[in-house]
Design a protein around this nucleic acid. Sequence first.
DNA 1: ATGAAGTTTCAAAAATTTTTGAACCAACAA
DNA 2: TTGTTGGTTCAAAAATTTTTGAAACTTCAT
Lengths: 166, 166
Amino acid sequence: MKLEESKDKFIQSWGALGSSWGINRTMAQIHALLLISPEALSAEDIMEALQISRGNANMNIRALIDWGLVYKELKAGERREFFVAEKDMWTVVRNIITQRKKKELEPMLKVLEEISNVDDNSPEAEEFVQVIREIKLFSNKANSTLDSLVKSDSNWFVGTFMKMIK
Amino acid sequence: MKLEESKDKFIQSWGALGSSWGINRTMAQIHALLLISPEALSAEDIMEALQISRGNANMNIRALIDWGLVYKELKAGERREFFVAEKDMWTVVRNIITQRKKKELEPMLKVLEEISNVDDNSPEAEEFVQVIREIKLFSNKANSTLDSLVKSDSNWFVGTFMKMIK
DNA sequence: ATGAAGTTTCAAAAATTTTTGAACCAACAA
DNA sequence: TTGTTGGTTCAAAAATTTTTGAAACTTCAT
């Protein structure tokens, strides 16, 4: 397989994967492009390579920086900004977990807390509260497990976890 | 808070959570409705409760059954079908992981395998292959970790994992 | 100041995903 | 066989998400 073809295939697949992971297609494609880019790229380079508009490029680059998946790199004597990808996959996954936990899991926990205050003592209400209680228990566990996961380091993940788990 | 209001809030939030988890809003809402439903519901009941069309209800119920998140329940002497939710959260998460692993992670692994066959020995190609190799290593690890996770049981998750992890 | 190079914003347009509803199919009772 | 109830399908419509591109803004050099 030819290099250009390979690179392109990687960018497309990474885009598809990302879009089912809460990262939109273009955002993931930019990340992919930067991952396999030997040097930092400018916004212009990215627009060119992916054939996207300036606005789109700008917004998605900002989002990637927000998520900690891309860094700004300033070159001496250059006015424009260059960008590089976070290349450590463990950090990439960790940052995504952190963002999504905050945006999705935590609001759910808040809601579960709220709705367990049902001021009604019918058997039906009892049953409802019981179901919610179990979901809450599970979610809290998941939440703190993810916290630990995020705090642990790459080395731990690739090394110990696999053995521990079986 | 009133019971009906609580239930409704739960359905809405579960729908929102689901839609950022590869399960569409309605699909997650149906699951939520069934989770907090004391008895099995018919398609008609679900359409009524969520104010959705017959086609929508049918398709999403089928998808939920496919994912192993909802079961069909046949009542003696009743021609129509009733549905109940899988209520064990660990099983729910496990089934979602299984589905998404198959639909998203595994195709990516295949692509990574393919594209590491670059028949080019320029330094640039070398570098590219190296980056892909690292991603592949990580993805394979993630894949088998998820496999173990899926095989392990609920009890293990809620009990041991937390202590192990720190 | 003025202009050039680069960045940001955001309303409108395009693309994508989800939902609808009517036609069709299947099982059964009369 | 026909009518009724319930399930399935899918093209078209609606809703949602993403992208565009032009205007506004910023920074810096002259």
